[in-house]
Every structure is written in structure tokens, then in C-alpha cells.
Amino acid sequence: MNPIRLYGMRGSGNCWKPAALMQHLGIAFDWVEIDIVNGGSRTPAFLAMNPNGKVPLLEVDGRYLAESNAMLCYLAEGSPLWPTERWQRARVLEWLFFEQYSHEPGIATVRYWIKYLGKGEAWAEKITATRVRGYAALTVMEQQLARTPWLTGDAPTIADIALAAYTHVADEGGFDLGRYPAIEVWLQRLFALPGITPMRA
């Protein structure tokens, strides 16, 4: 069997997700660094693997899988992090879709504008408006985590890894996580799991 390869950029929450999951599950993989800021994902060689020109990209036995949350579902198959019970699996998917549609556009986008593009001052008005959406997503999470220790109930799932990715670095986009005590405790709980460590840029 060929080694699993994960093409990604350090500091990207979407790339952190499958890496954190594989580290937690003890799945061996090779990391291939791709500098997306300087066009690393737009080269002919990379586009031949992923025509969408984005990372992360997972290579398994010569096949390629894009989209971080699809990777989580694939990699977690057979583990407790991806439930087999129909309703619980749907709840996990509910949070994965929430992460992509409601959470990431507000939180990850603002972080990217500030941390990687250096537009904190130039785009201040747009950033302030976009933060509203991010705070709304954090509020939804806080309400759930005030009721249950994990997003879907009493046990961790890939939904927690997906939502932790950009939540735990939200301060780099100017978000105040101190307003969300349940989220802060949840993050501590997540990073106490084997192999799951905070993202390093």
C-alpha cells in the first residue's frame, strides 16, 4: 500500500482537520506542504490532482479526495468519531454543513484577511460586518456546548474536530472567545484527546 499523503498548508484550519484526525487515530501519513498564498495550488502538477486548485488534498493509493469534511468522513470510518447509528450520523453531518456554510465564512475568512493578507485596517468596515456572522456561529455553538460536552452529545465526533479548526484560532481574526466559556472548556477537552494538538502556523 502506498503511504497516505496530505497536501496542505500549515496554518490552514481545513488542512489541520484531517491531519489532527489521522494523528488521533494513529493513521500514518506524509505531509506535503503547499504554499497557497504564492500560487502553490495553481501549478499544472497540482491542478492535475485537484482541478479546483485548493488544499487540503488527500492522496490514498493513487486516488485523490478534496474537501476537508469529506476527508473526515472517509478517515473516521469504523471509528467512534463517525457514528453508525443513522440519527447520530445525521447530527454529525448537520454540524459539518454548519461549519462550512455558517461558521467558516465568518471566522476563517476574517482571519485570512487579517493574518495572511494584512488587510486589518484597509478592510476594517468589511471585517467588522463579517465578524457579525462569525459571532452568530459561535453563539450557536456556545448554546449547544452549554447543554452537552460535545457538539452531538456525550461523545466526541468528527464534528468537534471540524468546528475546532477555526474556532481555536479565532482570536487571530479579532474574535473574543472569552465571551464563550462553554466553547473554551470544550476546546480544552478536545486538546486533551490523544494526538490532537493546536494548530501551528
Rank of each mutant, 00 (worst) to 15 (best):
T84S: 15
G78T: 00
F29T: 01
L81F: 09
P44V: 11
L138C: 05
L58Q: 04
P44Y: 10
A108H: 04
A108G: 15
Y135M: 02
Y64M: 07
N38V: 08
R133Y: 03
E77G: 00
A146E: 10
R89C: 07
D35M: 13
Y64C: 06
A136G: 13
F29Y: 15
T84F: 00
Q143M: 06
F46I: 06
T130V: 02
A76D: 07
W123E: 15
R147F: 05
P51E: 11
R133A: 11
N38D: 12
P149L: 08
K54A: 14
N38M: 06
E77H: 13
F46H: 06
Q144M: 05
S68I: 02
I36Q: 01
N50K: 08
G106P: 02
L93V: 14
R42C: 11
Y112E: 07
R63V: 02
Y135P: 00
G134W: 01
V140R: 09
L145S: 04
L57I: 12
P105V: 11
V32W: 06
P56E: 13
D35H: 08
F97N: 03
V92K: 00
G40Q: 08
I107V: 15
A66L: 11
L58C: 09
L65Y: 02
F98S: 09
W31P: 01
V60M: 12
D35A: 05
Q144W: 00
G118H: 12
R86W: 10
T148Y: 07
A66D: 05
L96M: 14
A129Y: 09
A124W: 00
W113T: 08
